[in-house]
Design a protein around this nucleic acid. Structure first.
Lengths: 237, 237
DNA sequence: TGTCAACTGTCAGCAGCTGACACTAGCGTG
DNA sequence: CACGCTAGTGTCAGCTGCTGACAGTTGACA
């Protein structure tokens, strides 16, 4: 799943292949349109199939599940991020590399997606995912799979063994956790819907990452006595 | 959902209430047993219901979904964590408070759960969740809901406004991300199954959190020239 | 042009889940 | 103690997501 999708982007040769691509894009666009207008749960697979004048069975030949179709564009974005991360120069600090990769991915996103669906529709879809439990679940799982991939990339960059050195996993988990949090907050009603707003929010949150863990409220442990409140055996105390 | 469950623990008065509680526990135990022996997908709701000699309809009166029943014990653990976090002294550093809360929750877990199901079964269930896509999805979403709650607690502790100060959200996201990563790694085949192993792994990962973001591989930016590789306009450059 | 393979539609069926309705069995009251 | 109330349950009927099997159609390629 999610491997040989190449949703648009490439322009396949044969008439057959083009037709296939077109059907796929049509299904995705129709699904997104229906999902965002009348809701995910309220939309049946039959409706989507009917909108493209295709049988339900055919829908399931293109998408493994009803959920799957909602992530067509999300996959593109994730793919972009991973690709951009791979392109970051070797000497760059890993955390910074991730930040830059996100920024670049977003910058490129517009043109990447435009062929499949208008950006505005994609943004609506993003919000819908965040606010639909069933979709959010799937999105989080997909995210955790992507995390694994990122861990691999980071570990390779730094020439570290994932099993013996926890840092790649930990760093990626922290950064991804924060990015996801940014996405969720952005998706809440009342927030600006634009891509820029999401990008800005993510930047703000990532800026706050290190200070949040090492900053004042960590250093402020028992400021008067200088004695730590807690015992030293942090573990299972 | 997940509010008025009080799975065991309290011993309700009436015969009626006790019967209800018993049915619920039975369903959960039976489900866990079936899930862990023959797999989640391969187990039908009918089987679970039959095992307790109850109709399928009744099963759905106790659990909102097939997924739901798998998280009965997980809910207990999460509840423990939140409760312990609330009990942490006010002056304690928030990140440390979270660590301590996790440790305490695990220590108490044994006795908390024992009434519902043997610890060993619970651990098998935990692993099953991590390795079953559909369940992992749900687990992650539940986790993200718990994150919200934790953010609220932390913000209250530190007298911070969640909307204006990103630190509570960011810190929680980072810590939770790392804890989740620990859980996933622990769930991978080949790892020790014991609670202690999970606790130890989590500790290791949390220990690595700050160093991973601020440590050598972050400080090692262009050591020779002292010049930073990246431009200063981190954002959307 | 004809053969092959890819793609699609139809049909039948399972599993998760829900609403409606009738029935049984604890619970509180007179 | 008898009685009514209602929480809890079973049964049935039905929708939706999803899959396997088989047959028909259409592009690709010799």
């Amino acid at each position: 799943m999610s491997v040989g999708q190449d949703t648009a982007a490439e322009r396949p040769a044969g008439l057959r292949a083009r037709k296939k691509q077109r059907t796929r894009d049509d299904l995705m666009r129709a699904a997104l349109e229906l999902f965002t207008t009348q809701g995910y749960e309220a939309t049946t697979v039959d409706e989507i199939a009917d909108a493209v004048e295709v049988s339900q069975r055919t829908f399931f030949r293109y998408f493994a599940s009803k959920e799957d179709v909602a992530f067509g564009v999300a996959s593109l974005m994730e793919g972009q991020f991973v690709e951009q991360l791979r392109l970051r120069p070797a000497g760059e600090d890993p955390i910074l590399a991730m930040r830059r990769a996100v920024a670049c991915a977003w910058e490129l996103m517009g043109e990447t997606i435009e062929e499949v669906a208008p950006v505005e529709l994609v943004m609506r879809a993003y919000r819908m995912i965040e606010s639909t439990p069933a979709l959010l679940s799937a999105a989080l799982r997909r995210g955790s799979e992507t995390e694994d991939e990122i861990v691999g990339i980071i570990a390779a960059r730094e020439h570290l063994d994932v099993e013996s050195d926890p840092r790649p996993r930990v760093a990626v988990a922290a950064v991804c956790g924060v990015m996801r949090m940014a996405g969720r907050v952005w998706g809440q009603p009342g927030h600006e819907t634009s891509v820029e707003a999401l990008a800005a929010l993510t930047e703000t949150y990532l800026d706050a990452l290190t200070p949040s863990l090492t900053g004042p409220w960590l250093g402020a442990r028992e400021p008067r006595t200088g004695r730590r409140v807690c015992r030293d055996d942090v573990p299972v105390g």
